[in-house]
Design a protein around this nucleic acid. Structure first.
Length: 579
RNA sequence: CGGGGUGUAGCUCAGCUUGGCAGAGCGCACGGUUCGGGACCGUGAGGUCGAAGGUUCAAAUCCUUUCACCCCGACCA
């Protein structure tokens, strides 16, 4: 490839900020603003500037290649969707204020699509008649809109964002499984190629069938999701969804006689434990909740946290709020901080976490101020309606798959695979005729990647105090060329020549020809995060050497200018940059 | 939607308590000196102080209303 136009910094828009913009709080938001890749237009709505746009295009290109490789067919759907389709699926009413709604001049209702299940299902309903036309995997890369209550974290949670969404259409569950596996493999390839450190998480391991939905999470300390994962096997799960198997029980202790003790002013588990000189895990913690209809009390071990999602799923309730002091006194008739299961029978619905069943000679509130019971034992001293898994997983728990201890890390969700089944096809009548001429509902899956979110997540993961450290596969440019003396035409010519050589050999390069001092260009190069920086100085003209500095490692090498293109090409395509 | 906070020059912020000429640093323009990690000197441009109303001789400053934005929570990808 010869004769490519080379990119000069003076011919594009590079506007970096020295200071951290006041309304950016997390590092990806700050660095994307400072490096001149992003500007805010309104809360949760952004312009992606030329440098950021190049990153976006590279991520999209990787996604396209892998979707196409896996058999996906690209199309483009509108952002504006008619209300009727959403009414057919039933989601017009349930989606709530998060749906951007609008009306045209004829008072017809539309929305800005937060997702596209309806449109894809409608398309297949209209176009697909026979099982012979399946399987089919259709996808698009398109803007999505969600009127978030609180947009935040910059691109990580905007009101407008770009998503790749693919929908698979099969005649049966086996077909869906196959489509799902193809997407699973494709997602692994995509995020690996993007240079991200990610984990695949069982999003709903409790569901029958096991592998119904997976989330792809980028590991980053600033992530909004907490993930437990096994150090020994490949198990990983969202902490809120991770099941908590009960650890094997040591021989039960001999039951001691129930004993009422005075524990003045000990309202919390840690206060009680400290006062009585016992570990927190010997305390039975009781939590009171208000639900749709009746109040519910739940027991967990004193050193554990209750997982409200598990409780909510168990109760099938819409409302689930922890009872405040007023509720506890009023609805439950109990003293806050001194409630317990003993003698609670019949007064309130009582559930308990599995783990509490094996707790012998525990401490629990005596249901009167300033008193607890010692040696409380299930069966003898209290009954519960049911035992179930109600606790929140935590670091050090045992892996449900292999029994080894779990670790805890934070992550950012960038992709999700989901088996929809026939939910939408049945609601909207997307049927085909099978081999026997029978009409069957199409079996669907949906597979999303947050494209803009992936961009931000990459920055969250790859940065240092000087700026972004782009993986070379998604960097806005792979290399920047900086002549130390921009005014020296000899150096400038060398720089331009080198930029042309690199560009011609397929290395995405930019020549920083701005009339700035070298220090400014170095700072900007670090901030923008070009993987490779090439510096040309006065000596380069005579000795023919240029300096190469790698952004990730900081390593510096001096090599002959004319071998730079071949050398970099080799390094960038074979090394595991930047890991 | 509940709680908290902030709106003053392109950016970061001071000034507000106690009303009295609208400020600093950075950036920008021009001239000069510089030129391997955000140079220096000089000159200059740039603001309806978020908006509306009120109090006052006088409002960035006090009062009311409103809008925008940020943070925590709830919710969510």
């Amino acid at each position: 490839m010869k004769g490519n136009k080379i990119m000069r910094a003076t011919e594009t828009l590079i506007s970096t900020l020295r200071e951290v913009p006041a309304d950016a709080d997390i590092v990806s938001h700050q660095l994307l603003l400072r490096s001149g890749m992003l500007r805010k237009v309104a809360a949760g709505i952004y312009t992606i500037l030329p440098l950021g746009h190049r990153v976006l295009l590279k991520i999209e290109a990787i996604i396209r290649e892998e979707m196409n490789r896996a058999g996906g067919i690209e199309l483009l759907m509108p952002i504006i969707q008619p209300a009727e389709l959403w009414q057919q699926s039933g989601r017009w009413d349930v989606y709530g204020p998060e749906l951007f709604r609008l009306k045209d001049r004829h008072e017809r209702s539309f929305c800005l699509g937060p997702t596209h299940e309806e449109l894809f299902t409608e398309l297949v309903r209209q176009e697909i008649r026979s099982y012979r036309q399946l399987p089919l995997m259709l996808y698009q890369i398109q803007n999505k809109y969600r009127d978030e209550r609180r947009p935040r974290f910059g691109l990580l949670r905007g009101r407008e964002f770009i998503m790749k969404d693919l929908y698979s259409f099969d005649i049966d569950e086996n077909g869906l499984d196959l489509s799902y596996r193809k997407m699973y493999a494709a997602y692994n390839r995509i995020f690996t190629r993007c240079g991200l450190d990610f984990r695949v998480v069982d999003a709903d391991p409790g569901a029958i069938g096991g592998n119904d939905t997976h989330e792809f999470m980028v590991m980053a300390d600033t992530g909004e999701a907490e993930i437990v994962f096994c150090s020994a096997c490949d198990y990983a799960a969202d902490v809120e969804k991770a099941p908590c198997p009960v650890e094997s029980q040591t021989a039960p202790a001999a039951l001691q006689p129930l004993q009422r003790v005075r524990t003045p002013g000990t309202h919390t588990v840690s206060e009680v434990a400290e006062y009585l000189g016992i570990p927190a895990e010997q305390v039975l913690k009781i939590l009171m909740y208000v639900t749709d209809d009746e109040p519910v009390a739940v027991l967990v071990r004193g050193d554990r946290s209750l997982n409200e999602i598990k409780l909510k799923n168990y109760l099938h309730t819409n409302v689930l709020e922890i009872a405040d002091e007023e509720d506890i006194a009023g609805r439950f008739g109990l003293p806050q901080g001194f409630a317990g299961p003993v003698g609670l029978g019949g007064r309130v619905r009582l559930l308990a976490d599995n783990e509490t069943k094996n707790l012998s000679n525990a401490v629990a509130g005596a249901n009167e101020p300033d008193f607890h019971y010692r040696n409380v034992n299930y069966g003898r001293d209290y009954q519960v309606e049911d035992f179930a898994d109600f606790r929140l997983a935590q670091e050090g728990d045992i892996c449900p798959k292999c029994g080894q201890p779990l670790q805890l890390k934070r992550g950012i969700e960038i992709g999700q695979l989901f088996k929809l089944g026939t939910k939408y096809s049945k609601a909207m009548g997307a049927n085909v005729l099978d081999e026997s001429g029978r009409e069957i509902a199409v079996v669907m899956g949906c597979y999303g990647i947050g494209v803009t979110r992936t961009l931000a997540a990459a920055v969250e993961q790859w940065h240092d105090q000087d700026g972004i450290i782009w993986p070379s596969s998604i960097a806005p440019y792979e290399a920047v060329i900086i002549p130390v003396g921009q005014h020296d035409s000899l150096q400038a010519d060398l720089a331009e020549d080198l930029c042309r050589q690199l560009t011609d050999s397929g290395i995405d390069s930019i020549y920083d020809d701005r009339p700035e001092r070298p220090g400014v260009k170095f700072k900007d190069a670090d901030l923008i995060g070009y993987p490779v920086r090439i510096v040309i100085n006065r000596d380069s003209a005579t000795d023919g050497l240029v300096e190469i500095k790698w952004r990730a490692s900081g390593a510096v090498e001096r090599i002959p200018k004319d071998t730079a293109a071949a050398y970099l090409r080799h390094k960038l395509t074979t090394d595991d940059y930047p890991l």
